[in-house]
Simulated scan of single mutants.
Amino acid sequence: MNNTPSDAQFPAMSWIKSSYSAADNECVEVALARPLVGVRDSKAMQGPELALTANAFAAFLDGVKDSGLDWTV
């Protein structure tokens, strides 16, 4: 099974970045293209992208929240 996103799955205009992102683009961006959620590094927009199912993305977010790290820095 190939989970590599294509341009059709994650069009350029569909990527969004958190309002908590630093001014110098130190953040991840997400794109919603059901049934997948795309994740990429905002500093390397032409680089690799992850394609996650909604359940996998929710588990990722839960892991970040439960990590105890201060993500607002």
Rank of each mutant, 00 (worst) to 15 (best):
D62A: 15
V37M: 08
K17W: 06
A33L: 03
S67Q: 06
G63Y: 07
P11M: 10
Y20P: 00
D24M: 11
M45Y: 09
W15Q: 14
P5S: 02
Y20D: 07
L69C: 00
E49R: 15
Q46M: 11
A54C: 08
S14T: 15
E26Y: 08
R40C: 08
N25T: 08
G38S: 05
A59R: 11
D24R: 08
V64W: 03
K65C: 03
V64P: 02
S67C: 09
L61H: 02
I16P: 01
K65W: 05
N25Q: 12
S19Y: 03
A22P: 00
S6R: 06
D7A: 11
A44G: 02
S14W: 12
A58M: 08
P48C: 03
G68E: 06
W15M: 09
V73K: 12
S6Q: 07
N3D: 02
R40F: 07
M1D: 00
R34F: 12
A51T: 01
W71T: 14
P48E: 11
S6P: 00
V39P: 01
A31W: 05
L61G: 01
R34M: 09
N55Y: 04
N55K: 14
V30D: 01
K43I: 02
A23F: 07
F10M: 04
V64M: 11
V37R: 06
D24K: 11
N55A: 15
K17T: 15
W71F: 14
T72W: 10
F57A: 03
S14N: 14
T72R: 12
V73H: 08
D62N: 13
D7P: 10
S18F: 02
L50Q: 13
L69G: 00
S42L: 04
T53K: 02
A58Q: 11
G47A: 09
L69H: 13
W15C: 14
A8D: 14
A58F: 03
L69E: 06
A31Q: 04
L69T: 04
G47C: 03
V39Y: 04
A54M: 12
M13G: 15
V73D: 07
A31T: 07
E26R: 09
T53A: 01
A8I: 06
N3A: 04
G38I: 02
F57D: 00
L52N: 04
W71I: 14
A12D: 15
W15A: 13
I16S: 13
A31N: 11
N55S: 13
V39E: 07
F57L: 08
S67K: 03
T72E: 07
A59G: 11
T72I: 04
D7V: 09
N55M: 06
A51L: 01
